[in-house]
């Protein structure tokens, strides 16, 4: 040894990097990804493949040639965005619609703001909502899952869509549930119309538990969303069970679990402090319930998360960590 390396402390580093964290999120999404391919068949695999490939490619091309910076593809964050976007789309979405969604998510929502860490809105949700308002026919054309090797898929509405439509035509919740054969146990395992990420509650929860065990995310945001939705929907459904769906239905349907476990917990677009995170979660839960019960859309999770994303800078200003010796 000729020269000594001299640098300030600390001299060691935890075994963690942006890449390792993003890789953990990819791993955590795998149970739901596999479940969705099994339930929806090869069409789903195509949507996933196109979404991930275009997100990664676009991030590379834009950072490298448009922004002329070092490419940030290696950090796996584009893979996460690609997976989450695909899981928010129906398996029947044409490949070019997926591509447009990916271009909006990566090009507009992420890189226009300065890339990973700088974006105000969750790129995958921004991409999904952009497609929802631009291509509503494709985006509401859900498929009743028939399995990887099953018969031809029958298209139909999601449970949330069925209830919304039925209520508007003067039906009541219990009638509609019975009429369409919706049961909670079924919802827990899947087999309902919806996007990939909505299909299997158990797979999503398993992935989320992995993230918690690896200490990639903290539980507060997810818990506050789930609790808020549970409390509000219990109150409403007790008050009028014919007009309002109950907590189990709301927690297991639509993008609730995907959103609460994987989208609202996105580091960049959620508050830094625990208390801020809890307020953020309450906001998402509240807005979702309001949109589902009283809005025009059957599903409110995406809009709720995007709206609360915009409040994060304020929440970060108002809520701080508890400081030592300054009580």
């Amino acid at each position: 040894m000729s020269k000594l390396l001299v640098s300030p402390s600390p001299h060691i580093h935890a075994d963690v990097s942006t890449k390792s964290l993003m890789r953990d999120v990819v791993i955590a999404l795998m149970p739901a990804v596999i479940a969705s391919v099994v339930f929806y068949g090869w069409g789903e695999l195509l949507v996933l493949g196109v979404s991930v490939a275009s997100c990664v490619l676009l991030e590379y091309l834009i950072t490298r040639y448009l922004l002329k910076k070092t490419s940030t593809v290696g950090d796996f964050s584009a893979v996460v965005t690609g997976l989450l976007l695909a899981m928010n789309l129906p398996a029947t979405t044409p490949w070019w619609v997926v591509l447009i969604g990916a271009a909006f998510a990566i090009g507009v929502a992420k890189l226009t703001f300065g890339g990973l860490g700088q974006n105000v809105f969750n790129p995958a949700i921004a991409g999904r909502v952009f497609l929802l308002v631009s291509f509503p026919t494709y985006m509401t054309h859900w498929e009743v899952p028939q399995g990887l090797f099953g018969v031809d898929a029958i298209s139909g509405a999601t449970p949330l869509g069925i209830i919304k439509e039925g209520l508007m035509q003067g039906g009541s919740v219990p009638e509609l549930m019975a009429q369409h054969g919706l049961s909670y146990t079924q919802m827990l395992y899947a087999n309902l119309g919806g996007s990939a990420g909505e299909v299997c509650a158990l797979a999503l929860v398993a992935g989320f538990l992995y993230l918690l065990a690896r200490r990639v995310v903290k539980p507060w945001i997810t818990l506050s969303i789930v609790c808020t939705v549970a409390i509000l929907t219990t109150a409403f459904s007790l008050a009028d069970p014919t007009r309002f769906t109950g907590p189990a239905f709301n927690l297991l349907s639509g993008g609730m679990l995907l959103g609460a476990c994987f989208m609202a917990t996105d580091y960049v677009t959620s508050p830094m402090s625990n208390l801020g995170g809890i307020i953020f979660g309450i906001g998402i839960g509240l807005l979702t319930v309001i949109i589902r019960y009283f809005g025009a859309y059957p599903e409110g999770m995406s809009f709720a998360i995007l709206i609360m994303n915009a409040t994060v800078p304020l929440l970060n200003r108002w809520f701080h960590q508890k400081k030592f010796g300054r009580a």
């Binding site: 963690v16 942006t18 964290l21 940030t72 950090d75 964050s77 300065g114 890339g115 990973l116 860490g117 700088q118 580091y267 960049v268 830094m272 402090s273």
Partner: peptide, 8 residues
């Protein structure tokens, strides 16, 4: 690299 605002 850029801060990802993870809060760690």
């Amino acid at each position: 690299s850029q801060c990802i605002r993870c809060g760690r």
